[in-house]
Design a protein around this nucleic acid. Structure first.
Length: 449
RNA sequence: GUGGCCAUAGUUCAGCUGGUUAGAACAUCAGAUUGUGGUUCUGAGGGUCGUGGGUUCGAGUCCCAUUGGCCACCCCA
């Protein structure tokens, strides 16, 4: 107790003020409503997972970003001396940490499905909202703790799942009034391109370079790849791929079974969205996560400089890694933090977001407090949020309080009101004043809900 | 993980090339006035200059480390 600690947050994390929470909940509720409508059920899993569950699913880069949790107790006691003297962190980690914080919600889902397969009805459609952690270097719109909002279908290979999930993207962003473009590509298709160029030796490099296409352009991508000594034919193919559309697919790519399947899937998929200009084929879309194997998405906000605000894809082999039978999965993930930032920037939050309190009653003197409290309770009993303002009688304070909490109306109660039962109810934002008794008020508020 | 920029009251900033008790605006709080706020008047509180070392007679100002923010790369929501 002797030393005072300056309050501060750990890197890349944030506190949320009541106002911010209200706005975040607005986003969560909007998404949840759509998920439920499509038959997805909510689940929860622990923030902490065993490290062996998490490691090796996100690629080498991903593994580096995992938060590890030190073992309890005397965690150095049984570490062999040779491990300590090598100063090799990776080696030492195995001895001192066997738990970590989840990196996303998809890998925990795979673990969950295998573990509970006898209790689950397949196809398993679930959604999951919760924080995930990445030891990334923070930047704007990039945090070490952030929420994901996922919907996945496990145990169905039908392409209709992809169609349905795309529909969910469209519905959610329509409800939030965010103008978006949904970029779509197919991992097999990328794979096939990789196979063709340099006999597959630089597939990973091609995918990484494609991913940067929106930043550095087609020429930039080709320029970056040219250092691997590609032939003119290969360069031409890549250029055609990057500038092509779904109808323009190079014959070489279709020559294999995989290439053919990817092409057919994409064609079928886009057949469902011929009237939807927001859904486009984007051949440069790659996505870093290693586990994707089929169609992949990325949603970007039109006209706002921000990374993707949602993404997803099909993954065929994830449950296999946990010793389960191979169940194909496909899922999408909404990035709440970025959606929030975009909505702030475009001013898309409705004014009516509040704590749910409609009216603030202000007793002018102690003698009318009891009467005022009764009125407040009457509204509350009817399900209407109402508050009584006690304490400081300064008007400015009362209005500040109501404004800060998003309360819509304010009414001062004095002896006149007690006698007549009629209140002067002022709308805080429009400053209009109406005269109503408690029943009329109740009806007004009920009609507003 | 690599490289770079930044850090002064709640907020936005000022503080010249190191030199006496670190300032302003807005915000906050208190008081005056007002049967209905955002105008006005009066007054007050609040910063050991992110933190810890160092150089110097003397550091908000220079150096190092550390924490946090931001940018590029990597990667990603």
């Amino acid at each position: 107790m002797s030393q005072k600690i300056k309050p501060s947050l750990s890197k890349g994390t944030r506190d949320f003020l009541p106002r911010e929470v209200a706005k975040r909940n607005y986003i969560f509720e909007t998404i949840k409503a759509v998920f439920r409508k499509y038959g997805f059920e909510q689940i929860e899993t622990p923030a902490i997972e065993r490290l062996e569950t998490l490691t090796g699913k996100y690629g080498d880069e991903g593994d580096k970003l995992l938060f590890k949790i030190l073992n309890s107790g005397d965690y150095l006691k049984d570490v062999p001396d040779e491990v300590l003297t090598t100063h090799n962190s990776q080696l030492a980690t195995k001895h001192i940490a066997e738990k970590g914080l989840r990196y996303d919600l998809t890998v925990p889902l795979a673990r969950y499905v295998v573990q509970h397969k006898s209790e689950i009805t397949f196809p398993f459609k679930r959604f999951h909202i919760g924080p995930v952690w990445r030891a990334d270097r923070p930047q704007k719109g990039r945090y070490q703790e952030f929420y994901q909002c996922d919907a996945d279908v496990i145990g169905s290979t039908s392409l209709w799942n992809e169609v349905e999930l795309t529909q969910i993207f469209l519905e959610v962003y329509k409800a939030l009034k965010i103008p978006v473009t949904i970029l779509v590509n197919h991992r097999l298709y990328l794979q096939r391109i990789g196979d063709f160029v340099k006999q597959g030796a630089i597939t990973a490099e091609i995918i990484a370079a494609f991913d940067k296409c929106d930043k550095i352009g087609i020429d930039g991508v080709l320029n970056e790849l040219s250092k691997y000594g590609l032939s003119q034919e290969e360069l031409n193919l890549l250029r055609n791929v990057l500038s092509g559309t779904i109808n323009y697919l190079n014959i070489e790519i279709q020559e294999s079974e995989e290439g053919k399947k990817a092409h057919n899937d994409l064609s079928k998929f886009f057949g469902q969205f011929t009237n939807e200009s927001a859904v486009i084929f984007y051949p440069a879309l790659a996505r870093g996560l290693d586990y994707y194997t089929g169609i992949i998405w990325e949603v970007v906000c039109n006209g706002v400089q921000m990374g993707s605000i949602a993404s997803g894809g099909r993954y065929d082999n994830l449950t296999e890694m946990f010793g389960g039978q191979n169940l194909s999965g496909v899922g999408i993930s909404f990035g709440i933090e970025r959606i929030y930032d975009v909505m702030e920037e475009l001013n898309l939050f409705p004014d009516t977001i509040s704590q749910g309190v409609k009216i603030l009653f202000v007793p002018r003197e102690p003698a009318v407090e009891e009467f005022t409290y009764t009125q407040v309770q009457t509204l509350r009993d009817a399900g209407i949020g109402a508050e009584i303002f006690l304490g400081n009688v300064k008007k400015q304070k009362q209005f500040d309080y109501a404004t800060a909490k998003g309360i819509l109306y304010i009414a001062e109660i004095g002896q006149d009101e007690v006698a007549s039962g009629v209140f002067r109810v002022k709308n805080i934002s429009t400053r209009e004043e109406i005269r109503q008794n408690i029943d009329e008020l109740l009806h007004l508020f009920i009609s507003q809900q």
